[in-house]
Nucleic acid binder design. Structure first.
Lengths: 151, 151
DNA sequence: ATGACATTGTTGCGCGGTCAACTATTCCCG
DNA sequence: CGGGAATAGTTGACCGCGCAACAATGTCAT
């Protein structure tokens, strides 16, 4: 086997800064949403996906794909959101196995309530610290990484 | 309250690419470590922290701080690693409340076994897609973000 | 010295997530 | 058509994590 090419100091530092900042960022966003709007970050993201979908509804599998989680995870999350009144399940008429998750009016309202604070936190913790150049590099680099990881 | 400054298209794209690539990356690293070495990513990182500490040991609280997780999380993780034989608990002699988590020889061996594959995966999924310029921007930007989030 | 307060590590509890198994349905090829 | 294979969504079992409560110990002003 080929000899391992270890990370040099600069790579190490990059890796650690990225990992640790990301961990802290997610924690901060989760806390902000939870305390200010009573939604978890993952639930918030599901609501966002639904709000951007045509008819404010998505197949369960598409919701799983969009959020990069498992199907069982989506099943349980949608049940949770349904109990909160923010989403309802609607049967597919063209596929009798299928289920849509559909945003309710209350769900849309909750999203509208939560969004400003969330966007503010994203700015405060991330974009306020990125120059235009930084942002372009981050965008391009992570877009390539995502494409590779999806490939 | 001030009007919300929403994310423009470029910011949206940056945010999504970063978030989704990161999610996929962590999943990929976790899977690689789990299948190739039988360690979770979080456990691997704890072993790394211990291996870098003087005497291959760290106070429980310091391990919690270093890994940005809760103390109870570290308590349970160390119990897990102890059961695997990779870590042992050692009482502090200067603080009778204190506990050290200390890397065992088996733990060091496991780390040595797992590290090359892990580093390879980090290269394959991340650094291979970053130019030197990309990397510098990522390093600086996330270093600033981390500093802010720690402040 | 002593009493109030802080800190350390562990634990019970509950939440949220994955994996594997299962049922129901649809697809597709011979 | 018919029947095996693929797919959709749910569920049970299990795991890891955070929060709050707790006992044990240390700290510090008076």
């Amino acid at each position: 086997m080929a000899q391992t090419r270890w990370l040099d100091d600069d790579e190490q530092e990059t890796w650690r800064a990225y990992l640790e900042a990301t961990r802290l960022l997610i924690q901060a966003l989760d806390r902000q949403l939870e305390t200010d709007a009573g939604v978890s970050f993952t639930d918030y993201e599901l609501l966002v996906h639904l709000s951007e979908a045509p008819g404010h509804r998505l197949r369960m599998r598409d919701l799983a794909d969009a959020s990069f989680t498992s199907r069982s995870g989506v099943t349980r999350a949608v049940t949770r959101l349904e109990d909160a009144g923010w989403v309802r399940r609607v049967e597919c008429d063209d596929d009798r196995r299928g289920m849509h998750a559909e945003l309710t009016a209350a769900g849309a309202a909750k999203l509208a309530e939560a969004a400003p604070g969330h966007v503010g936190a994203v700015r405060e913790h991330m974009f306020d610290h990125l120059s235009a150049e930084d942002r372009a590099h981050v965008r391009d680099a992570y877009t390539r990484m995502r494409a590779h990881l999806l490939g």
